[in-house]
Amino acid sequence: MAGRTGLTRATVSSLVEELLDAGLLAELAAERGGPGRPANPLQLNRAGPAGLGLEIEVDHVAACVVDLTGEVRAVRRVASDHRDDDPRRALARAAELGLSVAAESGLAVAGAAVAVPGVVGADGVVVRAPNLPRWSGAHLGPELSPLLGGLPVTTANEADLAALAELWFADGPPDALYVSGGIGVGAGIVLGGQLFRGAGGRAGELGHVVVDPDGPPCRCGGRGCLEQVAGQEALLRAAGADDLDALPPHVLDGAARALGVALAGAVNLLDVPVVVLGGIYARFGPAFGDDVHARLVERVVHRSDVAVRPSALGAGGALRAAAASVVRERLRAP
Results as ranks from 00 to 15, higher is better:
G231Y: 06
V229L: 14
D242P: 10
D242K: 04
H208G: 12
Q228N: 08
R219L: 08
D242L: 10
E233R: 12
V211R: 00
P249W: 09
C225R: 05
D245Y: 10
A234W: 06
G204D: 06
G198Y: 04
V209L: 15
D243H: 08
R202W: 10
A203H: 05
Q228D: 05
D242E: 15
E233Y: 03
G200S: 05
L247M: 12
C218I: 00
G198D: 04
R219V: 08
H208C: 13
A199R: 13
L252D: 02
G207R: 13
P248G: 03
R223Q: 01
R202H: 11
G207W: 09
R219I: 06
P217T: 04
H208Y: 15
G231I: 01
C218K: 02
E227M: 02
D214C: 01
Q232E: 13
P249S: 15
D245R: 14
L244D: 07
H250C: 11
Q232M: 09
G215R: 00
R197E: 13
Q232V: 01
A255Q: 11
A238I: 12
Q228R: 00
G224N: 00
C225I: 07
L252K: 04
L235S: 02
D214Y: 10
R197M: 12
L244Y: 11
R223A: 01
R197K: 15
A238D: 14
G222S: 12
A239D: 08
G200H: 14
D212W: 08
A234G: 10
P248F: 00
L252M: 11
P248V: 10
D242R: 04
G200C: 05
L252C: 11
R219C: 01
L244Q: 04
G224L: 05
A199N: 07
D243S: 08
P216I: 09
P217F: 03
A203C: 13
A199Y: 05
E233S: 06
G224I: 02
P213Q: 11
V229T: 14
G204A: 15
P216R: 14
D242M: 06
A230V: 05
L247K: 04
R219M: 07
A203D: 09
Q228A: 07
E227L: 03
G222I: 05
G221I: 00
L206Q: 09
D243N: 15
A234H: 06
D253V: 07
P217N: 01
G215Y: 03
L247E: 10
G200N: 12
G221W: 06
L252W: 03
L235R: 05
G204Q: 13
R237W: 00
L226C: 07
